[in-house]
Design a protein around this nucleic acid. Structure first.
Length: 731
DNA sequence: AAAAAAG
């Protein structure tokens, strides 16, 4: 057996950035406290330490407090030795050490890294280059040629792609590499199944559960009794909207639909939730199964419970202390309805002419409800919590008044060199930071203010340069911002307005503390704005420390029922999963596929490409330039399918995605809502298809219940009509 | 599991 299969050894080193190593930088970080740290041996002098001792202490301290696993130094050392052996590029990967556990050793351990994967293609193409641009260019052509070729190719049979197409060298190599890796000589493409075999092992997360399942057979016979409904369901599909098939499903949760009708926009105000206790009791009947089979779920549920009050939780035990109750109360939102803002203009809300014009140029002629609700509050200087469905215009809701306020407080000292930033916008992903800047920058420019992006994954030189010239609004991600603060290159002491986009995500474990530290750097008494599509008590830690009597706003009637998104759940056999995804993705229209891991996202993208579908991937194993480029490919329509991890789940806006496929179901209902929010934007129709194994049905039902989503659940196998229907373009 | 930090 190949030694690498556990870590997905065929995966390419995504962050390999050949241009860095080519400059002759030293390999890997060697400073104490870093993963690759190795005390000087082999007569090696300690490397330059970029972080100060206090930085590292702070980090160690934080790691301890967040319960992060101690760094695995042996692994790190092992790896860094490999890097050294490979004799290049290790320096380029420095900062990524934390992520490493991920098949990195495997990737490099084999043969010094050459020729094992996609990235190396590019590397090989540009090995002699001095700058990354060439390499990237070469790679792009490589890809594009491949697409161009595809049409000519007709059947992608076993015809080996020979070297006659120089531009595609990478591809061929990749397969060669794969053979190697699998330890399985010279199969042709037709032998693909072998690959699936390996993948199955890879996706084996469900495997153990399966054997358990077997002992749980009662559940299965139950399933069987449901089977007939499958054909029934299909026959009925035209009237799907009526959801006849649901009725049997509903038996679990009778109160839900009732509840729905009853519910006003302020869902969280409901105090009686009969169905919940019912649920609990039901579960109590099978304690054993819950414990053994679904430990992770219990965990997930718990965090939901703790974190939710804008969304109903299915728990009626007294889960909060009096102190929590205060927070709960503070989070009660004022609901604004669309009709409340009819005829209101941005000017009416208090924005100046320049800004109104800039907004019009961005396509925002009149304010959306969330904007009408929050803009006056922000202008009045209040702290604001804003919740609005994805795509409801949150960026403008905070961006426009923020600019207006900065302008008002300009005090005549405009555009001073090296002036300190006066506003900060934090986002959880780089893509989102970029996207926010694309909206905020034109607004800021319209009144002569400057923005800059501060995020990782790119050289900091330009960012530092911009700061030295002086900017008014900093937009970025926590890591680099904190880094620059520690370097003394970013001073937030004049920041009077701070915005947290996707605030609840920023409060997730691991994100919260950097965010808190950053907020503490900002001006005391500064205004704080928290926005998200799913804003719940998870933000309490921030609210308590930083917000003073915040105004809480949401948009009335913005629940899933009024959404333009249709939700479907497909129960599939694991072995069919890839084929089903392939069928669903082979369609007109833009499709976004979510996978749980980077490796799976990459593999799926590969598979789809191999099937002749224009697909690409987006995840944290790609370097930033490729992340940006791949996202742009979907935006521009050069590919129609993007396979992404949850890096793309929140906030990312791409026009006209009409199908979202969840290759792996999310663990949290909020994740579901955010992923689903990538489609059905601006009132357009969209479909969300979630693939689950049958063992996950109940868990999925619970999740949908928390998200207040009604979804049809059907069994599906390759060749089923339901797949054709779902793949059909949205009307 | 993923995200976010290394001229």
């Amino acid at each position: 057996m190949p030694k690498t299969n556990k870590t997905g050894g065929f995966k390419a080193p995504k962050n390999y950035e050949p241009n860095r190593g080519a400059r002759g930088t030293k390999p890997g970080s060697r400073s104490a406290g870093h993963r690759g740290y190795r005390p000087a041996e082999e007569g090696e002098a300690p490397r330059k330490q970029r972080w100060t001792t206090s930085d590292r202490e702070a980090r160690a301290d934080r790691d301890a407090r967040t319960g992060r696993a101690p760094r695995d130094d042996s692994f790190g050392r092992d790896r860094s030795e490999r890097f050294e052996r490979s004799g290049r590029d290790a320096g380029a990967r420095g900062g990524r050490d934390d992520r490493a556990g991920y098949g990195r050793g495997a990737r490099f351990g084999r043969d010094g890294g050459a020729g094992t994967g996609r990235d190396d293609r590019g590397a090989r193409g540009g090995f002699s280059r001095d700058g990354g641009a060439d390499a990237r260019g070469a790679r792009r052509f490589d890809r594009d040629d491949r697409f161009a070729d595809r049409d000519d190719r007709g059947a992608r049979g076993g015809a080996p792609r020979d070297g006659e197409r120089g531009a595609r060298f990478g591809r061929d190599d990749r397969f060669a590499g794969r053979d190697d890796r699998g330890g399985r000589g010279g199969y042709t493409r037709d032998e693909r199944p072998a690959r699936g075999d390996r993948f199955e092992r890879d996706g084996g997360a469900e495997r153990p559960a399966r054997s358990f399942d077997r002992s749980d057979r009662p559940a299965r016979s139950f399933d069987r009794s449901e089977r007939p409904t499958r054909s029934f369901d299909r026959a009925d599909r035209p009237e799907r909207s009526e959801r006849p098939a649901r009725s049997y499903d509903r038996a679990d949760r009778p109160a839900r639909s009732f509840d729905r009708d009853d519910r006003g926009p302020r869902r969280y105000e409901r105090t009686d939730r009969p169905e919940r206790s019912f649920d609990r009791g039901d579960r109590g009947d099978r304690p054993r199964r819950d414990r053994d089979d679904r430990a992770p779920r219990q965990y997930g549920e718990r965090s939901d419970r703790r974190g939710s009050d804008l969304y109903p939780s299915r728990d009626d035990r007294p889960a909060f202390t009096p102190q929590d109750d205060v927070v709960l109360e503070r989070l009660e939102a004022q609901a604004t309805e669309a009709k409340d803002v009819e005829g209101v203009t941005f000017g009416d809300l208090g924005l100046g002419n320049n800004i109104v014009r800039a907004l019009a140029e961005l396509g925002a002629e009149s304010p959306f409800p969330i904007q009408a609700a929050t803009i006056p509050e922000v202008l009045a200087g209040r702290d604001v919590l804003g919740r609005g469905r994805t795509g409801s215009g949150k960026t403008i809701a905070f961006g426009a008044p923020l600019v207006e306020k900065l302008m008002e407080n300009n005090g005549g000292q405009k555009r001073q060199m090296g002036r300190k930033p006066r506003a900060l916008i934090l986002a959880p992903t780089r893509e989102l930071a970029l996207q926010i800047d694309r909206t905020v920058q034109p607004i800021a420019r319209s009144v002569g203010l400057f923005t800059t992006q501060i995020y990782g994954g790119v050289p900091q030189g330009r960012q530092v340069g911009a700061l030295q010239r002086g900017v008014d609004i900093v937009i970025g991600t926590p890591g680099r911002i904190e880094d620059l603060i520690n370097q003394g290159r970013l001073d937030l002491s004049e920041v009077a307005i701070t915005v947290l986009d996707e605030a609840d995500h920023m409060c997730d474990l691991g994100f919260l503390e950097p965010v808190q530290r950053i907020l503490r750097e900002t001006k005391e008494g500064g205004q704080k704005l928290l926005f998200s599509a799913t804003l719940d008590r998870g933000v309490a830690a921030l609210v308590e420390e930083f917000l003073v009597e915040p105004a809480v706003h949401e948009v009335a009637g913005e629940d899933q029922a009024s959404s333009t998104i249709e939700h479907r759940v497909l129960v599939v056999e694991h072995r069919d999963k890839d084929a089903i995804i392939e069928r669903l993705a082979d369609r007109e229209g833009k499709t976004l596929i979510f996978a749980r891991t980077r490796a799976y996202a990459e593999r799926l993208a590969d598979q789809l490409e191999d099937a002749g579908i224009f697909a690409t991937s987006l995840h944290g194993d790609l370097n930033q330039s490729r992340r940006t480029r791949n996202l742009e490919r979907l935006t521009s329509g050069r590919v129609s399918v993007l396979v992404a991890t949850d890096v793309a789940a929140r906030g990312i806006h791409v026009d006209d995605i009409d199908l979202v496929i969840q290759a792996d179901a999310p663990d949290e209902y909020k994740t579901y809502l955010h992923r689903a929010g990538r489609t059905g934007r601006a009132g357009k129709r969209g479909t969300v298809v979630t693939l689950i194994p049958r063992t996950r049905r109940r868990r999925m039902d619970d999740l949908l219940g928390r998200a207040e989503i009604e979804a049809d659940t059907t069994f599906a196998a390759p060749g089923d009509q339901v797949l054709e229907d779902l793949a059909a373009p949205q009307a």
